[in-house]
């Protein structure tokens, strides 16, 4: 009994540690500039959240909304397409025997250990040479590649798509590619969601690539946009409020999506880590 009380106390303290900063951000986003410094930081003063949001989305012709849309396009688009590509490659590695299979797998696996940030500078140099450095594609195209996704897809395909089923599909005259999209992806679906989530977070968190690549602020993802505002807070104090509200708005969709998709994390991570 005593140990249960102790354990629950630890759990409670950790909950405070993990959630208090987010609570602080939420409370801060509801205050105007005077109240932000003048009132108790962890509790509400007058509720200005709606006014603050209106100010944020109209500031400089709504550049913040543009950043949000950019982030969705970069991250959502790259993760969706990247997951399909990684799944196809991993599936082939698991289900077919072909020449160069081991070599391909080992090269891809080495790619997992090469940090994405090491690629940012040479990618910038290459895109500059092609005259495409400061464009949407310069951030989007490199973000499609996810070697870790291929690794996971191979494990999941081997574990969840039975040979007999593929043989049966072949006897029925279904082409290999069609079988993959109609049968195999369905069996691999929980795993694919996991790969998607991993990829999503990796692209969302890749800060160096857009930082080096982009100079036009209308192409910025929201992280880079808020970062540039934050660097100007000392010169332009009213930006501080916008940074706080912007930070809250930028994390809300992601937190909600995470909570909804949480069971996929658990299942997929379990399979990936045990192997």
């Amino acid at each position: 009994m005593k140990s249960r009380v102790g354990v629950m106390a630890v759990m409670g303290l950790c909950t405070i540690y993990f959630l208090a900063p987010i609570w602080w951000l939420f409370v801060g986003a509801t205050k105007n500039n005077d109240q932000f410094t003048g009132t108790a930081p962890m509790w509400f003063a007058d509720f200005h959240l709606v006014d603050n949001i209106r100010e944020l989305v109209t500031y400089r012709d709504g550049v913040f909304l543009r950043w949000m849309l950019n982030s969705i396009a970069y991250t959502g688009g790259a993760a969706l397409l990247g997951t399909v590509l990684a799944a196809m490659c991993g599936y082939a590695l698991a289900k077919y025997r072909f020449r160069g299979r081991e070599l391909l797998f080992n090269i891809v696996l080495s790619g997992v250990l090469v940090p994405a940030t090491a690629l940012a500078l040479p990618l910038f140099l290459i895109f500059s040479k092609a005259g495409a450095a400061n464009t949407f594609w310069a951030v989007f195209l490199p973000s499609l590649v996810n070697p870790f996704g291929v690794y996971l897809a191979r494990i999941y395909a081997a574990a969840s798509v039975p040979e007999e089923l593929l043989e049966a599909a072949r006897i029925d005259g279904s082409g290999e590619v069609r079988t993959f999209f109609t049968v195999s992806t369905r069996l691999m679906f929980p795993a694919l969601v996991t790969i998607f989530l991993f990829h999503f977070v990796a692209v969302w968190n890749n800060f160096l690539l857009p930082l080096i690549m982009l100079s036009d602020e209308r192409l910025f993802p929201v992280t880079l946009g808020l970062y540039t505002w934050n660097t100007q807070v000392n010169q332009v104090p009213e930006l501080r409020g916008l940074v706080i509200v912007g930070a809250l708005l930028s994390i809300t969709p992601l937190v909600v999506a995470f909570l909804l998709l949480q069971r996929f994390w658990r299942n997929g991570l379990g399979a990936g880590a045990v192997k």
């Binding site: 993990f18 959630l19 900063p21 987010i22 977070v201 969302w204 968190n205 800060f207 992280t223 880079l224 808020l226 970062y227 930028s250 994390i251 992601l254 937190v255 999506a257 995470f258 909570l259």
Partner: peptide, 8 residues
């Protein structure tokens, strides 16, 4: 939940 929040 904090994992949903980008490093920046």
């Amino acid at each position: 939940v904090p994992y949903a929040i980008p490093g920046v």
